[in-house]
Structure formats: C-alpha cells, structure tokens
Design a binder for these strands. Structure first.
Length: 283
DNA sequence: ATCCCCACCTGGCCGC
DNA sequence: TGCGGCCAGGTGGGGA
C-alpha cells in the first residue's frame, strides 16, 4: 500500500478520532509482523492516553502519555480501521487482524495480510529511533530543496529511479510517486544522478524541476486521499482517488498522456522493481 | 563506501 | 475448476 500520501491519509484519520483517548487494552494475533511485536507493547501502552499522532516519512508516530511512543510502519499491506461503536460491540477478529486497540467504547484494528508492517515502542524521542534517525528530508518540508539533492547526487552513478527510492536521500517516496514524478519532470528513470548536477556541485535546472514535481505530485495525492490499489483504504475503509490520475504507473502498453506523443508506456525492471515511463518524453 | 539483490509474506490474477 | 507462475505500494541485511 503505502507511500507518504497514503500514510498521511491514515494518520489524519487516526488523529481525528484517537487524540485524547485512552488505550484500555490491546489484543494481539500472536503472529510476528516483519519483526516480532514488542513483548512490552501491551503492558506499556495499556492505560496510556494518546496525546498526539504524527507522521515521519512512511511512519505513523503515536505519542502517548508518560513519554511512550509507538512507531508504526504499514509495510506493503498494513492498514488501520476505526470501528464504529456499533461494529465494535460484536466485532470478531478477522484473518490478518494482528493488533486490536480497545478504547472506552470502540476499537481500532491493525490488519496486515503480508505482515511486512511493523511496530516499535520506545520511551525515548522517536526521532532518535534507528528507523527514523537515518531518514532523509521529505517532500514539502523546509529542508527538502535542490541543494540537498545536488549534494546527494554529486558525482554519483546510480540511476535516478533508484536514488529517489533511497529513503536516506529523500524519504516518503515509493515506486508509484517516483515513476510519476520522473514522468512529470521528463527525466528518464535510467539517467545517472550525476547528470542532474553541474561539475561545480550546483543543481541543474532539470533537478530543480524534479524537486518541484515531487512536491507537486505528493501534494496532489494527499488532497485526493492517496492512491488505492488492491487493498489500500483509509481508516473508514474508503478508497483514495489519486490512482485515477496516474500518467505512467501501471500503464504498460497504454498511450502516453502527453499531447502530441504517440508512444506507448514501457515497463522495465530496475533493482528488481518495475519502472514505468515514456521513452519519448523522458530523456 | 556504494549499490544491488534477496528475503520477508499472502493473495490475486493470468494462462494453461 | 485447479494449479503453477508471476506480480505487488517497503525495508534492511548481506555481499559484491
């Protein structure tokens, strides 16, 4: 499922309902997620109030009372559902429901078929957690700019597609938004990143365009509630709409959307992952 | 040091 | 209808 816009959508849904609520109890399926669920999750989080809910990159951060934080990653197929009071009364855990949070009069269910998601609990600043500390700046944040990209791209040989998926360079993008941002920027995904930087280390215009298009595609997707492919939905079980606006992702063999372009979208594999692009528009 | 590959899982879809 | 193969939004560890 989830890249930055989808995680932001889930985070907002949780924030609307859960802030100032007290976790009365937690039920676990007994399965491990990508990592084992922390043994002290139930004892440490139960009885705590949810003070605030934040997001860093693709992580949802639950800030609880007494300086406890939950750090939640949705992996590929993780999702939170907030059950209504009525649903909560008779709810029986479904297959792949791995964590059920009990509140006074309703429940929140974490469901994750592929179990690539994970959750950590910490009594320290979550920003210092090893999963968060290494993340690069994220789109639309103050410290995301062409200078920092130019620094990361300077004299490096990697294809730009791979570099944009590297969460230590820029965090929050995944396969969909990288493909879409490169199309909007008219940059070939195979292009080596050093070619976007002048030999004096400053950003070429194409890199500035790329930075702007990354911000734009993320902003637009958040406004539409993210992209729903297969199983992504928000905390109410509703779908996002951004998938209807894809220019290249999942469009192999279909016509390029650019005016005056007669090319078909191509799928290649880079570092084991599908890349979709227009060979004519993206140079 | 840098970068790629693979494993971690289940389920859905396609072709035979 | 069934089965095998392939594909999927992410990440971190190991190895080249």
């Amino acid at each position: 499922m989830p890249e930055l816009p989808e995680v932001e959508t889930v985070k907002k849904g949780l924030e609307n309902i859960l802030v100032n609520k007290i976790i009365k109890g937690i039920n676990l399926s007994g399965f491990s997620l990508r990592f084992p669920i922390p043994k002290n999750l139930v004892s440490l989080a139960s009885g705590k109030k949810i003070v605030s809910i934040g997001r860093r990159s693709k992580y949802i951060l639950f800030n609880l009372s007494e300086n406890i934080s939950l750090i939640s990653h949705l992996g590929m197929s993780g999702n939170y559902r907030i059950l209504s009071q009525e649903e909560s009364k008779s709810y029986k855990a479904k297959k792949h429901d791995h964590i059920i949070f009990q509140f006074e009069d309703f429940k929140v269910v974490y469901n994750d078929p592929r179990r690539f998601g994970y959750i950590f609990i910490t009594d320290k600043d979550p920003k210092d957690h090893r999963s968060i500390a290494c993340l690069g700046p994220e789109p639309m944040s103050n410290n995301f700019n062409e200078a920092i990209l130019a620094k990361s791209f300077y004299k490096k040989e990697r294809p730009v597609k791979n570099a944009l998926l590297d969460q230590t360079i820029i965090s929050g993008l995944g396969n969909i938004y990288v493909c879409e941002a490169l199309f909007r920027s008219k940059i070939n995904p195979k292009k080596k990143i050093k070619q976007l930087v002048y030999s004096n280390g400053s950003a070429k215009n194409s890199l500035i365009i790329l930075k702007n298009e990354i911000n734009e595609v993320i902003k637009e997707s958040i406004l539409l509630g993210g992209s729903s492919l297969k199983d992504f939905s928000n905390t109410e079980g509703k779908m996002g709409y951004f998938q209807n606006t894809f220019s290249v992702y999942g469009r192999e063999g279909e016509l390029c959307v650019s005016k005056d372009c007669d090319q078909k979208i191509v799928r290649i594999v880079q570092s084991g992952r599908s890349t979709f692009y227009c060979p004519k528009c993206q140079k």
